[in-house]
Simulated scan of single mutants.
Amino acid sequence: MLEVSALEWVITLGAIVALLAIDLVQGWLRPHKVGFKEATAWSVFYIAVAIAFGVIFAMVHGWDFGTQYFTGYIVEKSLSVDNLFVFVVIMTTFAVPEEHQQKVLTFGIVLALIMRAIFIVVGAALLNLFSFMFLVFGVLLLWTAVQLYRHKDEEPDIEDNMVVKGAKRLFPVSTEYDAGKLFTRDNGKRVATPLFLVLVAIGGIDLLFALDSIPAVFGVTQEAYIVFACNAFALLGLRALFFLVKGLLDRLVYLSTGLAIILGFIGVKLVLHWLHVDISPSVPEIPTMLSLVVILGILAIVTVASLIKTRGDPAAKAKPGSLRARKERTEQN
């Protein structure tokens, strides 16, 4: 079992807060259009920080835990790319001006970290108290994998999102962005701006992604510290990664399929772990190193296959995938 001192937690949290502060300054207090060069530099920086943390962590606690960290980080990083797809859909749906996109992304990252921290605490407590939660998490991931594969060529219906619809009922919404404000005055009445709806949509999507990503990384490791570190370092580079790859996302036509396979694989891993612990020790488990190799292999195949597909068919466009059919398609059926 991993033993992490209070000092390690303080140092880790302090580093994450410092990096968040940098993101906050860049995205919220100094809104500007992010160029390719700037996005590349920040992406490389955040990946380098995540790798450096993993190496130091492995040297201190052993490479078994280090492998768990890197496997979890890769899982969360790959799932975060799907986050980017949905962020692009939200930005497009609400026509967010480029100078405010950093602000939206920074808010989304902070909110995602808070939600994941809550789910990690709850998930770790449930796994410690009830071993059958491994089965519950496994089945949840298998269901998610099936739904994502079924709707891999669709986009989530942002405006039909329950959270967004609820916000519209509570607040009248203006049609114009007002210098990045969340609320403004329209004919003397206080109304929400479209930017407020964008942040609400980001929050709702973050909640859904947390429900999927936390069970996924618990399928790699049951150590709460590693789960938190994986999520934190994967999300911290999301703002820069968005501006770096948003023009390339359309080419990853098989990403949703690959993520569905990865989630299904981890779901099977969790179910086998439950069977091994609660039913019979003779039931085999999937080693963490094998998980790392399989996940990297799936991502490599998906990336290469996507690039080959789009080279031969330039009209092919990737979709982020959805857990349910769009409303209008359901009505047609």
Rank of each mutant, 00 (worst) to 15 (best):
L259G: 06
V17P: 14
G312S: 12
L296Y: 04
L197F: 08
V81Y: 09
I22G: 12
T310H: 08
A50Y: 01
G123S: 14
E3C: 08
I158V: 13
D250F: 03
A48Y: 10
W9H: 11
G237F: 05
V110S: 15
K152C: 05
V44G: 14
A18S: 06
F36I: 05
V217C: 03
Q68K: 15
N187M: 13
A21H: 11
G27L: 05
Y73S: 02
Y149I: 01
K165S: 11
K309M: 09
G267A: 01
V122K: 11
I308Y: 06
E328S: 13
I308D: 04
N128G: 12
R326M: 11
V191T: 08
E285K: 14
L126H: 07
E76N: 14
V253F: 03
K165G: 04
I295K: 07
F119V: 04
G267N: 02
V86I: 15
W28L: 13
T303Y: 10
Y254T: 00
L29N: 08
I22A: 15
T12W: 14
K189Q: 14
L248A: 09
G108V: 00
M162N: 07
V163C: 04
R116S: 02
F45C: 09
N83H: 13
K309G: 00
G72H: 00
L252I: 07
V198L: 04
V60M: 14
G188H: 09
A179T: 03
L296A: 12
A52P: 08
I298Q: 11
L195Q: 05
G203Y: 04
V121L: 15
K309F: 05
D82R: 04
I286H: 11
L129T: 12
N128F: 06
M1L: 10
L292V: 05
A52Q: 09
L249T: 00
I262A: 07
L140R: 05
A179S: 14
D313R: 14
T288H: 10
M289Q: 13
T303R: 01
P281E: 03
S174T: 05
I295P: 07
T221P: 01
E223S: 10
A305W: 10
V122P: 10
A224P: 14
S174L: 01
V200H: 01
T71C: 10
T257Y: 13
V191M: 15
L270H: 06
S80E: 01
I301A: 14
K37A: 08
K269E: 06
Q102T: 04
E154C: 08
Q222D: 12
K327S: 13
V220A: 08
D178G: 05
I279A: 13
L29V: 03
T221L: 06
F107P: 05
V283R: 13
L236H: 02
F94T: 02
V304H: 10
A232W: 03
A167T: 00
G264Y: 11
L207Y: 06
M115K: 03
L29F: 13
I261S: 09
I118T: 07
I266A: 02
L299Y: 08
G219C: 02
V271L: 15
L29I: 06
T303I: 09
P314Y: 03
P314H: 05
S131C: 08
L79R: 02
A15K: 05
W143Q: 10
L208Q: 12
E159L: 13
N161F: 14
A167I: 00
I301C: 11
A325R: 13
T221G: 05
K77H: 10
